[in-house]
Amino acid sequence: MPDDECVKMKINPVGGTLGRVFNDSNYIHLDEAERIGIKPIESIADVWRLKRPVCHIRSCREYGVDSLTHSLPYLVPEAAALLREIGERFNDSLQARGGGSYRLKVTSVLRTKHGIKKLRRSNRNAVEASAHQYGTTFDISYAKFLCDSVTVNRTQEDLKNLLGEVLKAIRDEGKCYVKYERKQGCFHITARDIRKEGES
């Protein structure tokens, strides 16, 4: 990301600091993930034997997928649709405020049991009972964004707060749970199946 001659953006307040606003408990994330997600898998080979369909997540114009070292690029359809919607609304909001060629960076997706054990050796914040095991949960970085071309320079802080504004609106619509991860520099997001909730 360029860091000089940045153009400031107007950001709408979300009602407090990002850490305070996005503080959905990991227990809530896990409960929803267990309810609508896949059965946890051991390795990538298990993806092909799943009864619940999953979508392969690839970099696109809405977001970029980081080089995943501890997770696999798969999500259940509800979570894949949510990720795309977040990217679309972020891009639309950015263009409505004067532009800039930035995309969101997805840093973690589906984790296997083996991947979680490996991750816990280097990351003390990683928990064994992770919502990432169910294909419902992904992380989007707020510390780094992808800059495809230099059109309008934006600050990392403005882009982070714009993403927070978008996530607040989507969470208020009942589509997801969000946790602001300070040490990991990301938003931890779990999709919600509002269709099922409306039927019950």
Results as ranks from 00 to 15, higher is better:
G135L: 06
V47T: 10
A81I: 12
S67T: 12
Q156E: 13
V21T: 06
L146W: 09
L163K: 07
I170W: 09
I11N: 02
Q184F: 10
E78W: 02
I194H: 13
K196I: 08
R84P: 07
P40W: 11
G16F: 05
S130D: 13
G135T: 06
R120V: 07
A129T: 11
Q156L: 11
E62H: 13
S101F: 02
E197R: 10
G15Q: 07
S59L: 06
H29C: 07
I36M: 08
R61F: 11
I57C: 04
T17G: 07
Y74T: 03
A143R: 15
S43L: 05
T151S: 08
D158W: 00
A81M: 13
V47S: 08
A131I: 05
T112W: 04
N153C: 06
Y74D: 02
R49D: 15
K51N: 14
I170M: 08
I38L: 06
V109P: 02
V76G: 00
F145V: 00
V166W: 09
E62T: 10
K8P: 03
A191D: 01
K183W: 12
L162I: 07
E62G: 04
A33P: 01
L104H: 06
N26M: 13
D139A: 02
N123L: 12
T190M: 04
E181A: 05
G174F: 10
I170D: 07
K179H: 15
T190P: 05
L75F: 01
R195W: 10
D31S: 09
C6N: 07
K39V: 15
E165S: 04
S93L: 14
N123P: 04
T17V: 05
V106F: 04
P2S: 15
G164V: 04
A96V: 03
C147E: 10
L110A: 05
V166R: 03
G16E: 05
K144Y: 14
N125I: 12
C147I: 00
L68P: 04
K118S: 14
D3A: 03
K160V: 00
R103C: 04
E128P: 01
K39Q: 14
E34K: 15
C186L: 10
E181G: 06
D148F: 05
K144V: 09
E173T: 03
Y102L: 04
L50P: 04
S71D: 06
K51V: 09
A143E: 15
R20A: 10
R192M: 09
G64Y: 13
Y180A: 02
Y180R: 03
I11Y: 03
I194Y: 14
K175N: 09
I28P: 00
H114L: 13
S67C: 06
R20E: 14
R154S: 00
V14Y: 01
D66G: 00
I116S: 00
L30S: 08
S67E: 13
R84Y: 10
R154H: 00
G174T: 10
H56N: 14
S122H: 12
G16I: 01
V7H: 01
